[in-house]
């Protein structure tokens, strides 16, 4: 049994069951498939997370976001600016205790370079109900190119625990036709 030493000291030379060999081959090939499918999706798929990242000091990032919001602000909701950047433009979103700032208004079918960074702790960008989830770190500015494919109101929750106000941290993206 498995709790005592093998009786045959040369167990390495024992033949392997055919069913075991068969399964090992199937499982190995499936593993290879899954490995290469991740690579293939970078070429055939429309959803790949960009890895373009820069180091930045939080105050410097805050300056960029404030300048962006002032330039393209169109309204104010709940005391937060609503910003409508032109299509293809760089869009800055910041995470801090406990809000996603500012609110964004994007156009369906247009691509935007969205910059993400945090001013304080780690946060989790969770766009709902689309269900895109990205980690946001302080000191790192990540840039993803996002193309909304649906119009409507979308919420951003925080799904990285960030202290006692974590469950109050939200933001909004409105997508217009």
């Amino acid at each position: 049994m498995a709790i005592s030493p093998p009786r045959n000291r040369l167990w390495w030379n024992e033949p392997i069951e055919r069913v075991e060999i068969g399964w090992i081959v199937v499982a190995f090939l499936w593993g290879l498939f899954m490995f290469f499918f991740m690579i293939a999706w970078h070429f055939i798929g429309g959803q790949n997370l960009s890895t373009e990242t820069y180091r930045i000091k939080p105050p410097a990032y805050e300056e960029k976001v404030v300048a962006f919001a002032e330039k393209y602000q169109v309204a104010e909701e709940d005391g937060t600016p609503v910003v409508r950047p032109p299509a293809g433009e760089d869009v800055y979103l910041l995470a801090r205790l406990w809000e996603w700032w500012p609110l964004l208004e994007l156009k369906k079918g247009q691509s935007y370079r969205i910059h993400l960074s945090s001013l304080d702790w780690q946060h989790g960008f969770s766009l709902q109900p689309v269900n895109i989830n990205i980690s946001v770190h302080p000191g790192y500015e990540q840039i993803i190119t996002l193309t909304p494919t649906q119009a409507g109101e979308f919420g951003i929750a925080c799904n990285e625990y960030c202290g006692i106000g974590h469950h109050m941290m939200t933001g909004r993206i409105r997508v217009v036709e």
């Binding site: 709940d78 937060t80 989790g124 709902q128 109101e153 625990y161 109050m168």
Partner: peptide, 19 residues
């Protein structure tokens, strides 16, 4: 369905921009 982990209130009642 998008429910976040480690989250006390998924109704988001006290949030600034609830949804």
């Amino acid at each position: 369905l998008g429910i976040p982990r480690r989250h006390w209130d998924i109704t988001l009642t006290d949030a600034m921009h609830p949804f």
